[in-house]
Amino acid sequence: MKTFKIYSLLIAIISISLFSCDVIEEPFMVVQEVVSDSCEAFIFSPVETYTKKVLLEDYTGQTCGNCPRAAEKAHELQEQYGEQLVVIAVHAGWFSNTSDEYPNDFTTEVGNAWNTHFGNSLAGNPNGMIDRVGYPNSYILQYSQWGEEIAEQIQIEPLVGIQIAATYNTSSKLICIDTQSEILYDLEGNLNITVVLIESGIISKQTDYSVDPEQYVDDYEQNHVLRKGLTNAWGESLGQETYLQSELFTHRYSIEKQADWDINNMSVIAFVSNPATYEVLQVEELHIID
């Protein structure tokens, strides 16, 4: 009788365990919210010539004491190249952890996914990527190397042109975004578009080893801070395997402004990349409020 009881117990445990497995079928992601009805489609007018713009991703963190040097470098390069250089400051990794002294959380799902995939914070902050060129070998660059790579990438003829339109409704707090990607040459392979929001002029505490003896700045100005992905981290496919010159692809997004965002300092950034190599072919930035 005792043996019987023990058997029943073991059998019960085994059967409970065997059923403890959920296999999830697609879709794995919860379907993204559809574009709000109150957003009206924007009609883009044709553009004669597109210039190549370059994306600089600056991987940084609020407790990274050498990161302000990289931010200064990014600023200096933007002075030099103007609108042709688009900067995203990605706060991710250990240096972006929050604490009592650094309560602001600048990390984002998109930024964390990029950081996990590309391994930037593991490589030691600050560092960055220019159009994600060189993946998977020498793609993580020190800020001293940025200028040279940008100078090279900026020479490249653009293969894709991007236009962005955005409106903000102050009463509903809804941001409506339209993008149009135009293929400029016949292309083989796949293209994805990724759209994110950034915010500049955020005042918060930052560790800074150049400030003696405090080693931090209380009212540091964080610029180009990645705030939110409108697509997922790897973007959405334009949906074809070959592309013909002058084909157009439009995408629409909407999102409600979050309470801690200052809309006056926000921009939309859209970039088209090759999902196989991750290389960014073209990028565009638009300030939401002119």
């Binding site: 065997l18 403890s20 497995c21 959920d22 999830i24 794995f28 992601m29 919860v30 799902e109």
Partner: peptide, 21 residues
């Protein structure tokens, strides 16, 4: 052997398996 772990899915973005066998 058979091993399974259980953790609640509180993530709004994903349909996560709560029991992973």
């Amino acid at each position: 052997s058979f091993v399974s772990k259980y953790q609640k899915d509180l993530n709004p973005a994903y349909n996560l398996p709560e029991n992973v066998g």
